[in-house]
Simulated scan of single mutants.
Amino acid sequence: MKSLKHLLTILSFFALSFSYAQVSVNVNIGTPPSWGPSGYNDVRYYYLPDLETYYDVNTSNYIYVSNGKWIQSRSLPRAYRNYDLYNEYKVVLTDYRGNRPYDNYKVHKVKYGKGYKGGPQKTIGQKPGKGNNKHSHDDHDNGHGNDKGHGNGHGKGKH
């Protein structure tokens, strides 16, 4: 009987710990990066036409082709590591549901080719280091900023 009480106590501890961990893990999921376009807090994907890359807001992963396969990564490919995402145009995929936005890649690539610009677009937050032209794509403050971001002055990219 004593060992049964001990086992139940241990199981209760693990169950409580697991449920607490679940709550704390989910707090930041789905928070757009500061370089994301303002006004779209409930979207999951952006398409970055100049990079031919998707960004998954829920997982904070970039999705792009590498060696002929779609991969998800926390960072961009080496060739784009110093790319300024605050000035990159973001197409907001408002009508897409699911986990594979690249299923529509051929359509997106044609419709939003490299150099594509829509109407005015502001970022959620300000570019760090005002006056500093270098920006790391890994600089996600995951805050919602003050909406005085400096986009490139081109479109919301609503799709």
Rank of each mutant, 00 (worst) to 15 (best):
K111H: 11
T94E: 08
D56S: 05
Y96P: 00
W70V: 02
G113Q: 03
Y112W: 05
G149W: 03
P37T: 14
N28H: 13
K106M: 09
N152S: 13
Y112L: 02
S66C: 06
H159K: 09
K5C: 11
Y83N: 06
V27G: 03
Y64H: 06
S38A: 12
T59G: 06
D84C: 08
R78G: 13
N133D: 10
I63P: 01
R74Y: 10
D103S: 07
T59S: 12
P37F: 10
S24E: 15
D138I: 11
G151P: 08
W35Y: 15
Y112V: 01
F14L: 14
T53A: 04
G131C: 04
W35D: 05
G125Y: 00
N104D: 15
N104C: 06
K127N: 00
Y20L: 13
G125C: 14
V23L: 09
Y46A: 04
K122H: 06
S60Y: 10
G68S: 07
N133L: 09
G36E: 02
E52G: 03
I71E: 12
R78N: 15
N142V: 07
G113D: 05
Q121I: 01
T31Y: 14
Y62S: 01
Y62H: 06
Y105T: 01
K5R: 09
K114W: 11
S66M: 08
D139N: 10
S136V: 02
N67V: 06
W70P: 00
S38V: 12
S66W: 02
V107F: 09
K156Q: 12
Q72Y: 06
S12E: 03
V92M: 01
V91W: 00
G118Y: 01
D95C: 13
N41W: 12
Y112E: 07
T59L: 09
S17T: 07
Y80C: 01
H150P: 04
P49G: 09
K109N: 06
M1I: 08
P120N: 11
R81T: 13
V57P: 02
H150A: 11
I63W: 01
N133S: 11
Y46H: 05
F14Q: 08
H140S: 12
K148V: 08
Q121T: 03
K158I: 13
L85I: 02
L48D: 05
Y40V: 06
A21I: 01
Q72T: 11
G118F: 00
G153S: 08
A15W: 04
N61D: 15
N146E: 10
G113R: 04
S75W: 09
H144A: 13
V92R: 01
G119Y: 04
A15G: 08
F13K: 02
L51K: 04
D139F: 07
N152R: 10
T94W: 02
K158D: 12
K106P: 00
I63F: 02
D95P: 00
Y45F: 11
Y96K: 03
V92W: 00
Y112N: 05
P101I: 14
S136K: 03
F13P: 05
T123I: 01
P101G: 15
D84S: 11
